[in-house]
Design a protein around this nucleic acid. Structure first.
Lengths: 335, 335
DNA sequence: CTGTTAGCGCCTTCAA
DNA sequence: TTGAAGGCGCTAACAG
């Protein structure tokens, strides 16, 4: 691969002249300029960003650590990040942590070695283990959607509590009083926050949440299927279910159909993400849409600002979701 | 951030000694070794991989260019790539091209500037425009699932023709004779290949494919919904549909339900990816599962091999899918 | 067993 | 308008 030196030799000028032509950083005679440019083109010279980075201590690369890029929510977040990063000339290095603290630590270490300018971190389940690792690094970090207690830095997330509240409120207003909740693993902060919102809505109306109505499963279709199957088998089955995420809601819809339970006639189901395919489920899923893509963009904007030296107070913000009513929720049927 | 020089000064040795204890590349007295290590720890020194790369001309980073990380198939592919890359100590830089040749070209240029060691490229729709750009670069490239006519390099993809054939064969064996196809955009090579497989199966049985039975739409749920709605409105509606991908199949299921058409009673639907959520659709979707994760791993393995200097003949291979029969397909109902 | 030296490719004063 | 030279942080001969 051609280097700047080779280009310079071929044109018969010094490397500093070539450098200045490339970066437009000082006046160069039109003749030389033209010849340098022509030679660059001819030799297919492409500047070495690593060498450049070594000088100015900026890699124009940001690290992104998420639990799993395959999950639709993270995929959307990642997309928002990539979009915004591209616009401002940054590349992203992707790491999937899978909630494995050891793996995540190894990855972060690698990213720091490669001198990422900043990090967007979705800490996932392994968040506490990361605190020590992160402390004492000079790399700007923006926390996405998962707070890390011991790390004091910018945070932008979704308002999961409000999401749980909005979904439950919707069910209550339809007239439901026997409302159950399908939650992800107990250790998952999001589920916990959404459950808190549900509880708040329930308590406002003096409605109970029996233990049997709160079921923890894996946060995917299989988990949701399992949970709703169990709920429907209860003596006093619920008339409505709030699933903390759409994947579980979709699984729940499947379980209801297989049990011969009409949705929304005998059971209302509301999800919590508004994934694209939920809109085409049978029946079309009501859910609380989250501004995931916007979250990615905002995180990136904030991080790049910090990299460029924006001081300003630590930001701590939660973006609001929006209830989307479709066909999986309705008034409870009188018997 | 601490540098090697600072560590060396503090210990009272030369930088080369520090370098050698870090890399274990020559014998160092146990005493010095211990002191160096302690100081590294103390100063929180982390080697600068960029400086290292500048010397040995290897960044241990590979570029991944895909159309859209949000699409479940690409998400799964990406995951396979990241998994395999992590295992062999490589990082990945992700770029979403969105089928925009200009954007993709800009991204690839950026990746080359950052001196990626290799590239995994899913060329998407913009494949021809990339040919010139790629030619004349020394960067090893592995083509994933989309061949690029003018670029002669390794290729591993999925056997879309066989997928179309298998899905259609399944419908034929169930007794269907009026089989329609929901295809993605006409320009999309995958759809074309899958349609070719469908045609082969149809022709073997002397079955026709009327123009009205081949409908091109956007390759998502909305497209599939639209297509099936139109197919069901036909005078001679099909009794079975092969949707070239699962998203369209899911949309089709939705359209059938809304039209009051029983699946699989009055209409069989088979998809072509076997996304996770298809297994929990109503009814559970029959599909042709694709080894997407394995594809990602193989691509990475191949690329890393090339980076390390594996000669060997150019590889050109297609991985086979596997029909998964669930509940959305059945024998046509006699009337 | 350890240090000195010469770059890797680029940018950037300082001189001319 | 242009060049020479030093250095970013690290590795790898080459000497001791």
């Amino acid at each position: 691969m051609a280097t700047m030196k080779q280009v310079a030799e071929r044109v018969g000028v010094s490397t500093s002249t070539v450098s200045h032509v490339i970066n437009g950083t000082r006046a160069v005679s039109e003749d030389v300029r033209r010849r340098v440019l022509a030679t660059i083109d001819d030799m297919r010279y492409i500047p070495n960003a690593m060498a450049r980075s070594l000088k100015n201590d900026k890699s124009h690369t940001i690290g992104v650590s998420i639990p799993d890029n395959t999950h639709p929510c993270f995929a959307e977040l990642l997309r928002g990040i990539e979009d915004a990063a591209f616009e401002v000339g940054y590349n992203i290095m992707l790491c999937n942590g899978y909630g494995d603290a050891r793996r995540q630590a190894a990855q972060l270490r690698g990213l720091v070695e490669k001198r990422i300018d900043g990090l967007i971190l979705v800490a996932g389940t392994a968040r506490n283990e990361l605190a020590t690792l992160l402390a004492g690094q000079r790399v700007p970090i923006v926390l996405a959607d998962h707070e890390v207690p011991a790390v004091e830095t910018d945070f932008i997330g979704l308002d999961h509590e409000a999401t749980g509240y909005a979904a439950t409120r919707h069910l209550i207003e339809l007239g439901h009083r026997r409302i159950a909740c399908v939650a992800g693993p107990q250790a998952e902060p999001h589920s916990l926050e959404r459950i808190a919102g549900l509880r708040r809505a329930l308590e406002e109306e003096g409605l109970p949440l029996p233990d049997a109505y709160l079921v923890y499963v894996t946060p995917d279709c299989a988990g949701g299927h399992d949970a709703v199957r169990r709920l429907l088998a209860l003596d006093a089955a619920p008339t409505a279910v709030f699933a903390c995420n759409d994947l579980m809601a979709l699984g729940g819809l499947c379980a209801a159909a297989e049990a011969g339970v009409a949705v929304p006639g005998q059971l209302s189901v509301v999800g919590g993400d508004d994934l694209g395919m939920g809109a085409f489920a049978t029946p079309r899923l009501s859910s609380v849409a989250q501004p995931t893509h916007a979250l990615g963009r905002q995180l990136t904007g904030l991080l790049v600002g910090r990299i460029r030296g924006d001081g300003g107070p630590r930001r701590h913000q939660r973006l609001q979701g929006r209830l989307v009513v479709r066909q999986s929720t309705g008034a409870p049927q009188p018997r």
